[in-house]
Nucleic acid binder design. Structure first.
Lengths: 134, 134
DNA sequence: TATAATGATAGTTATTTAATATCATTTATC
DNA sequence: GATAAATGATATTAAATAACTATCATTATA
């Protein structure tokens, strides 16, 4: 089990890279070549980030992707939620089944509270932090 | 992503059940029937728990499993570690690859710290807590 | 000796994740 | 206007993991 999955990790790397490069726009092909990420894979991630309003796109020849938000306005939890199904680590596999009462489940309460903690921590970690502190 | 996977969840339920029943030994077949868990599946879990010294076994006719530890001596994190590959949620998929220096990775540091928090929390949650507080 | 249990381990199926492929649309340049 | 180079949308395949099943040997009781 990983807290940050591959998609999220790639997304973070791409965004950090784009900030560092400081180019107006950069194509999926270039990112794929420079960061050594499979082309169709990074395309899907870039498309998602653009749908989520984190990237701008310019179509057609010479087009590509550029950042729409400032690094201090992108948090890690935002990206995790986009690529990891809202990060619902509490989801009970036994609901409607063995478990007598979901509301009285101590384990569930504990996990829920841990989830809250994680979301707060990653909510305070921006892309700027990742760039600046390194 | 789930914090507690199916194996761990079953293991917890079985142990709680065994404490509540207060029978000397109980067979895998009985547990399977009473908790509605697939027989070969629960067998594997029981075998693992017995290898890990959480259960005692008696082989042969009339045999089965019984608890070896007290509920206050079994923590949730123990069970998670047994069934979930030590719960290494930090594991970096990019080592030896893109990442320039694993030691300077801010994201990694953050995730590692979250992992530590989770392990402490689940380390303080015993099976007795799960029974008593319910 | 037959039966009912676990020990050990192999094998299968289902689900999820990772990666690839295709074609339409857009836009810059020649 | 034609061509090339880009993204948009979406379908498909492949690999990995998780879930589940099966088999046979060994043990112990009646």
């Amino acid at each position: 089990m990983l807290l940050i999955n591959r998609d999220t990790d790639y997304a973070i790397r791409v965004i950090v890279y784009m900030f560092k490069m400081d180019e107006k726009t950069i194509s999926a092909r270039d990112i794929s070549d420079r960061l050594d990420i499979p082309y169709p894979f990074i395309r899907k991630i870039l498309q998602t980030l653009s749908k989520e309003n984190i990237l701008k796109t310019r179509r057609g020849r010479g087009g590509g992707f550029s950042l729409k938000k400032l690094p201090e306005d992108i948090t890690t939890i935002q990206l995790v939620k986009i690529f990891q199904d809202d990060m619902d680590i509490t989801h009970c596999i036994f609901k409607d089944n063995i478990c007598p009462d979901i509301d009285s489940c101590i384990l569930r309460k504990e996990v829920k509270s841990i989830e809250k903690f994680i979301k707060e921590r990653l909510g305070n970690l921006t892309v700027e932090d990742l760039i600046r502190k390194q």
